[in-house]
Amino acid sequence: PSGFREYWRLVYELNGETHDEAWSVKTYKEVAEVFAKDHPDFLGLKLIYSDRRFKNVSVIKTSVKTAMALRTSFPTMVAGFDLVGHEDTGHTLYYYRDALLIPTLEGVKLPYFLHAGETDWQGTSIDDNLLDALILNSTRIGHGFALSKHPAVMEDLKKRDIPIEVCPISNQVLKLVTDLRIHPATAFMAVGYPMVISSDDPAFFGAKGLTHDFYEVFMGIGGMDADLRTLKQLATNSIKYSAMLPTEKKTAMKIWEKTWDNFIHDLIKK
């Protein structure tokens, strides 16, 4: 299994040369720096090191250690770690407990951005991923579709100001919900639960950017009372709950506020 993982992670050149994970992160960093020179409002990018939740524990242990090493080498680039893949057919977070507890046991801070609760089944071991994500102090909760069925978890996450990543188009494509007006996020918005909008798998779904997901949230989940304040809150949440450093968030918010003010000014003129 470990050999398969190394094969999977390698980047191949046409001449047969191969590169490891550190080379990939370094390359992303260099490209971002070049792009920023011509785009001063671009504040860079962050990478979440991920592995798939159908692999065995020993492989995920290696992945967690790799993520720890990469974050140490590239602290401003590598944001943390996540487990991705279809939850209902994959292993639970509890199954990977020995791997996910490695950073804590070694005294290393490795933020988690765990997918949890992407299911419409209640009472299964997969459904319990939300509780384990809470215990593991996940920085964000990917999807959290089943969160409304766990009021105690929802209340605790809200107290800790841990947001969920709502992925409306993904939820529709994967048939978790057909009508966004009855999406669990409608209740989250009603009580002011912290949430951000994500496209989940834009390449797989053929989507570009977040425009379509924002539109669906505004038109379906937001309800008849949704207005510019709704869009503004969702946009600022994207910055507030991002993996940027505090200083980067302040800079990003200033840039965004200037752009928003210009947008409102142009809207009024029209």
Rank of each mutant, 00 (worst) to 15 (best):
T236V: 08
E216I: 01
H183E: 01
D98F: 04
D156R: 12
K232F: 13
L210Y: 08
D161M: 08
M253D: 06
G123A: 13
A99Q: 06
T139R: 12
T124P: 04
P111D: 13
K46H: 11
R229V: 00
K249P: 10
F205K: 05
D127L: 02
V166Y: 00
L101N: 10
K46L: 14
V59L: 15
V84T: 06
T72A: 15
A116L: 09
L130R: 00
S2K: 05
I48D: 03
D132H: 15
K158W: 00
M244N: 13
N262F: 06
K208N: 05
L267H: 12
P111K: 08
D128P: 01
T186A: 00
G209L: 02
N129L: 04
I102S: 00
R140V: 03
I182F: 03
F54T: 13
F214C: 03
H86E: 12
V11A: 14
V217M: 11
P103K: 00
N56T: 10
L267Y: 14
G80F: 09
S73Y: 00
G144M: 01
S198G: 12
T186S: 01
A252G: 11
F218L: 07
V11P: 00
D132E: 12
A235R: 02
I60A: 12
Y112E: 11
K26T: 07
D98G: 02
F35C: 04
S238C: 09
N129C: 07
K249L: 10
K65L: 08
S138P: 13
F81D: 04
T251L: 13
K250F: 10
P194G: 04
D200M: 10
L47I: 15
S199P: 02
G44K: 07
F145R: 00
Y7E: 15
D41F: 02
R52N: 14
L70N: 05
D156V: 09
I126Q: 09
K109L: 13
M189E: 08
D127I: 02
E216A: 03
T89E: 05
A252M: 08
Y49N: 03
K258G: 08
T251K: 15
